[in-house]
Simulated assay, not measured.
Amino acid sequence: MSKRNIILLKTLAHLLCLAPFAWLIRFYTSGALALDPDPVAYITHFTGDWALWMLLASLAITPLRRLSPRINWLIRFRRLIGLYAFFYASLHLATYIFLFSGYDLPSVLISIRQGHPGAISDEWKVVWPTIWDDIRKRRFIQVGFFAWLILLALAATSPAAIMRAMGGKNWQRLHRLVYIAGVAAVIHYWWLVKTGVRTPRKVTAVLVILFLARVGYTASKRLNKPRSALQTTRS
């Protein structure tokens, strides 16, 4: 595929990945969000859902491109979509910190405009005991934060310069943790919803399929190695 087409497709990918965020902003500015019975819960679920689907989409690229050499160009979009997964996961976390935990963001912004940047840390000191208590008591927050930390590490090491500095093998080992992040994110989802709610079934099914594809490919690769070695010896 030509460089021009790749640029066009990446531009389209950026627009598609940003579309949910743009829709959420529009939903807020139109006043429709305020009519929801629980706007904070809506934002929390919205950003969490898109973080998960973006993460699964990035995981799906590798098995998809193996279907045919003609679509090898898909690999160019794996990092891009993965970074958007981190973006939505960060929005999901920010929703908890700045809206759910009681962090008074409007007051902090006003204080900053008035020349009091210390309000950021002052407000953080107020809400931190509540956040820490939630982390200790709620398993879904623990596993969700664990998933976010993995995505943070992957996002921080995504630039090509860092990959070269780490070395290809070390970089690959680290980025295989994306599967652990996927599992942790799905567990976070199951533990978050109420008992009897089956909403996470779809993402769970997709993750299982992706895992099976990964395991199947790895197994077939290992089986083919002895055969290749045997054929080489005979020849």
Rank of each mutant, 00 (worst) to 15 (best):
A219P: 13
A147G: 06
P159T: 07
I209P: 00
L24E: 02
L174V: 02
V183K: 00
F86C: 09
H14V: 10
P226Y: 07
D104C: 08
G168Y: 04
V183R: 06
I150G: 08
T11I: 15
R173P: 02
Y103L: 01
F46Q: 00
V40I: 12
G216V: 05
R173Q: 06
I110C: 06
D134T: 02
T47P: 09
F77T: 00
A181S: 14
A155R: 15
M163I: 09
R214H: 10
L83C: 01
W128K: 01
W50P: 05
A160G: 07
V127Y: 01
W191I: 05
R227P: 05
T29Y: 14
K225I: 15
F145M: 14
Q142T: 02
V193H: 08
T95K: 13
V203M: 15
M166F: 06
S90K: 15
F146L: 06
V215H: 10
F146K: 00
A13N: 09
G182W: 12
T29M: 07
S121A: 08
R113P: 13
W53E: 11
H175D: 04
L154W: 04
K10G: 09
K3P: 00
P159E: 02
A94K: 10
G182I: 01
L74R: 02
I112C: 05
P37D: 10
Y88S: 12
M54C: 14
S107H: 14
R176L: 11
P117T: 12
A184G: 01
L59K: 09
A153K: 10
L18I: 13
L67G: 08
P226G: 14
Y42D: 07
G102F: 02
F87M: 13
R66M: 10
N72Q: 10
R70G: 01
G216P: 11
P37K: 07
F77C: 00
V126M: 01
T218Y: 08
A219V: 15
W23K: 10
L154S: 10
I61D: 08
L35W: 05
R136W: 07
L35N: 13
Q114N: 13
G31C: 12
S90V: 14
K10M: 15
G48M: 13
W132R: 03
P63H: 02
R227T: 08
T47Y: 07
P106Y: 09
W190M: 11
V40C: 01
L56M: 07
Q231T: 04
L223G: 10
A13C: 15
L99R: 07
L210E: 03
P20A: 03
F86V: 06
L16Q: 03
S2T: 11
N170T: 11
P69W: 07
T47S: 11
A153L: 04
A119K: 15
A19Q: 12
A160E: 15
S220P: 00
I6S: 04
I110H: 08
I141T: 05
H45V: 09
P69Q: 05
R4C: 00
S158F: 13
I25C: 11
I187W: 14
D134P: 00
M1G: 12
R176W: 14
A156S: 15
